[in-house]
């Protein structure tokens, strides 16, 4: 008995030993240096402004400006609209794909999975130009419509729908993979048991499958929203000039208007919105791990 007790104590000591601390020290240091410190620094710089005389003073004027400026607000509302529409479309597109991949026994499922994951390996810039070539003015769709003697369609290029289509396409692989992982926890027998007591396909989806993967849906949406809210390349190339999404707006404020303080303010506000979705993600993960 004594030996066992000593052994287990030794294991616990090892877990908290210097090697363990050293192993986590580097990532913790990097997170603090590259993530935590820039956040604190950004918040400080936007709240303690330097006056023309060089003295520091506490002020919320940059935030007041952002929330009173109609252009900034329309950019924020366009970003929120784009994020919500993308999240909804992603769910509508990816859930059927994930359900098909999870429950199909057909050989076609492997090809569908390959196609669904493919956009993950296509850089955003290539995706953007492919979008322009296909859906842009005089793109493939226009040419096909012209060949069929049909009227020209109104291109989504440089409209709010441009970034929506691109961002949805770009986020399909990760969303499908997360939903697919969640669906892995729904056993075939649980579904068969539901069918056995009289549940049709829709009832199985609504009462058995969706309640079991609600956390995965939250995680997938949180991930997608975090990426979409602060996306740059796709909104920059495909989106309208004005109003614009917060990513290009931030870049333009910094580069073209030479106004770093307002650009940082926009970044802090973006961070504020993202952290809400981040907390959703953390809550979902914690709920998943709960016994």
């Amino acid at each position: 008995m004594t030996i066992v007790a000593e052994g287990s104590t030794g294991t616990n000591e090892n877990r908290g030993g210097p090697i363990g601390l050293l192993l986590v020290a580097l990532p913790v240091f990097l997170v603090c240096w590259l993530v935590i410190w820039p956040i604190i620094s950004a918040v400080m710089r936007t709240l303690w402004l330097t006056s023309e005389t060089g003295e520091k003073r506490f002020s919320t004027e940059t935030y007041q400006f952002f929330f009173s400026d109609p252009y900034s607000l329309s950019n924020l509302s366009l970003t929120l609209w784009t994020t919500c529409v993308c999240a909804l479309l992603l769910l509508l597109v990816c859930l059927p794909i994930a359900l098909y991949l999870r429950f199909s026994t057909s050989k076609v499922a492997a090809y569908v999975q390959g196609l669904a994951i493919f956009p993950m390996f296509v850089p955003s810039i290539i995706l953007s130009f492919a979008f322009i070539r296909v859906l842009g003015p005089n793109g493939t769709v226009d040419l096909l419509l012209n060949a069929a003697s049909l009227p020209k369609m109104r291109s989504p290029y440089l409209t709010p729908w441009g970034p929506v289509i691109g961002l949805v396409w770009d986020n399909i692989p990760l969303t499908v993979l997360i939903l697919l992982a969640g669906l892995g926890s729904v056993s075939n027998q649980a579904i068969e048991a539901a069918r056995d007591v009289g549940a049709g396909k829709l009832a199985v989806l609504w009462h058995i499958i969706l309640p079991r993967i609600v956390n995965s849906i939250l995680v997938a949406i949180s991930f997608a929203v975090l990426g979409i809210f602060s996306a740059f390349t796709l909104p920059y190339i495909l989106g309208p000039a004005a109003p614009e999404l917060i990513g290009p707006f931030m870049q333009r404020t910094f580069r073209d208007l030479y106004d770093p303080i307002n650009a940082i303010t926009q970044a802090v506000i973006t961070f504020g919105f993202c952290i809400v979705f981040g907390l959703f993600y953390v809550r979902s993960v914690a709920k998943n791990r709960a016994p």
């Binding site: 027998q189 056995d196 549940a199 058995i208």
Partner: peptide, 20 residues
Amino acid sequence: VPPEKRPTGMVFQSHALWTH
């Protein structure tokens, strides 16, 4: 006849209870 319309009741090896 599909399972949901059969007058049968099945008890599965893994219980297959709905944990939610």
